[in-house]
């Protein structure tokens, strides 16, 4: 089951590189993140899976799509009908459901390792408290850097 998920992940990674449209490329990258979070769940790492799903497939995709929509003008010359997109989305979802459902007999609840949710927090806040603060400072400095990069330019008046 993990191998199948990884195969789909590699497929979407190749699509993310080869697709000419940057928007489709970013959406393929979101699919890679979603599949990676499934792999994390299958490996018994649900905390990393949840984080990857919410941040990797969610936040990064939203930021990238927003940036693309800011910097690229919308092209309306070749517009595909909305109904086709809806049908294609349902067909893709049905295909994924069929593949994963047909493989479900190989996955039993006993094959998923038990997870101690509190242990990750224990490791993070006690064992790794030393490097947590510097990393928080790195993130804070990155936020300040973004604010500097995105500040509006001053218009000089003669």
């Amino acid at each position: 089951m993990t191998y199948l998920t990884m195969a789909f992940l590699i497929l979407f990674a190749v699509l993310a590189i080869l697709l000419p449209s940057t928007l489709m490329s970013v959406l393929s990258l979101a699919a890679v993140s979603a599949l990676l979070s499934i792999v994390f769940f299958q490996l018994g790492a649900p905390v990393a899976g949840v984080f990857e799903l919410s941040v990797g497939a969610g936040l990064i995709t939203v930021l990238a799509v927003l940036t693309i929509s800011f910097i690229q003008a919308r092209k309306v010359k070749k517009q595909i009908r909305t109904e086709l997109w809806i049908v294609a989305s349902f067909a893709a979802a049905a295909l994924f459901f069929f593949i994963f459902n047909s493989l479900s007999p190989w996955v039993s609840p006993s094959s998923v390792p038990p997870v101690n949710w509190g242990a990750v927090g224990e490791v993070l806040w006690r064992l790794r408290a030393f490097d947590l603060l510097p990393q928080a400072l790195v993130i804070l400095s990155a936020v300040l850097g973004i604010l500097v990069l995105l500040r509006p330019e001053k218009v000089e008046t003669p």
Binding site: A48, F51, E52, I60, V120, I139, L149
Partner: peptide
């Protein structure tokens, strides 16, 4: 797995910051 997950969380958080800075640079 707990230690690895805590490391993975930090890698993902730093990754988001890298992406945000990269996108801000792209915008600029």
């Amino acid at each position: 797995p707990d230690y690895a997950q805590s490391l993975a969380l930090m890698v993902i958080a730093i990754e988001v910051m890298v992406v945000a800075i990269f996108l801000a640079l792209i915008n600029a």
